[in-house]
């Protein structure tokens, strides 16, 4: 039964990737740079949230601190291009490794804290990093780093006239991160993560080193998040602290995952699939009115989904599948009353 389910999921996964590969060939998308933009954002946000999902969903440690790692990755790429005038790749690698180190250093003491104390601690860390980067002269402080005009192509990971390479870049990011999580999910490590989430004491009693598990999950999560940060800055040609290293950015990681369904493989994708078009198209439609109508509607829909199904969109889908199953059973039964 489990085997069959995995097979089904595998099939779904491969089909999904093929479909995503073909998206730019849909004429509607190819002709419309804004639709491309929306698709890129969906993939990026899904990747970000999946990175968060490792520690926040599977391991149950709600971190509001991921914008720090996101920001370090972004600054890695930004510094390489703007300050050193080289390709962003070394910056991205160094940034990601640095994010990992920072993640371990700040998480180690914080993992002593439980539940909300941990969440607020990560909150505080974001604020501290934000203010420090705002006055850090070497990374241009509040002024931010603006990209100069550079040669386009994969070496610089910059394109001006087309978004299609960005789309494939995002798709690579997306596939990598999702594959890693898919691998982890069925691996011993994944079971450890969930064991720690369900009950840390019991997990430790069975011989799991929970601190080590949490730290490695955090390090992996930070590493992947910082890649997303680097992509974000390469896409926007600008980085400043409020853009990448603020609570608002941290909230994105959490929001998308919870909306989709935390601790599930497809949750982040579903969350991004709903949230990003909502956010972008409500802004397109009503943003110009300038009365916050779009954001009000956006907030309203978030509330609506949560009130209707607190388990997120994954919950809604499960509910639907169960409903179909029960209906099948009911309809299969002979009518008794008549």
């Amino acid at each position: 039964m489990i085997k069959e389910n995995t097979k089904k999921q595998d099939l779904l996964w491969y089909v999904l990737i093929v479909v995503l590969l073909l998206v730019p060939f849909i004429p509607q998308v190819a002709a419309n740079s804004f639709t491309q933009h929306v698709f890129i954002l969906i993939l990026l946000y899904a990747s970000m949230s999946q990175a968060w999902n490792i520690i926040g969903g599977y391991c149950g440690q709600v971190s509001f601190g991921h914008s720090v790692f996101f920001g370090i990755g972004a600054y890695g790429a930004g510094m390489a291009v703007v300050k050193f005038g080289i390709t962003p790749w070394p910056g991205i690698i160094i940034g990601s490794l640095l994010a990992m180190v920072v993640a371990v250093l700040i998480s180690y003491p914080c993992f002593k804290l439980k539940g909300h104390y941990f969440a607020i601690a990560t909150f505080a860390i974001v604020e501290i990093f934000n203010r420090l980067f705002m006055v850090w002269y070497w990374v241009n402080g509040a002024l931010g780093l603006d990209y100069p005009m550079v040669k386009t192509g994969w070496t610089n990971f910059v394109w001006y006239r087309t978004k299609i390479p960005y789309y494939y870049g995002a798709l690579i990011l997306f596939t990598t991160i999702f594959s890693i999580v898919r691998f982890i999910e069925r691996n011993r490590f994944g079971y450890y993560l969930r064991a720690v989430r369900e009950d840390q004491e019991t997990a430790e009693a069975t011989g799991i080193n929970s601190t080590f598990i949490k730290l490695s999950a955090m390090a992996l999560s930070a590493f992947l998040a910082s890649f997303c940060g680097a992509f974000f800055v390469q896409y926007n040609f600008r980085v400043d602290p409020p853009m990448v290293m603020s609570l608002q950015v941290s909230m994105v990681f959490v929001l998308v995952t919870i909306l989709g369904g935390a601790g599930t493989l497809f949750g982040p994708l579903l969350g991004a699939l709903i949230l990003i078009p909502l956010q972008e198209y409500t802004r397109v439609l009503w943003g110009g009115l300038g009365r916050g109508t779009d954001l009000m509607l956006f907030g309203f829909l978030i509330v609506l989904i949560m009130v209707r199904q607190p388990k997120g969109i994954m919950g809604l889908i499960n509910e639907y599948l169960n409903y179909r199953k029960t209906r099948k059973i009911i309809s299969a039964q002979p009518e008794i009353n008549s």
Partner: peptide, 17 residues
């Protein structure tokens, strides 16, 4: 009319749109 909410990334996206 378009709204960039004071965020550079949205400003870029909206300008392109």
């Amino acid at each position: 009319h378009a709204d960039h909410q004071g965020k550079p990334d949205i400003a870029k996206a909206e300008a392109e749109r």
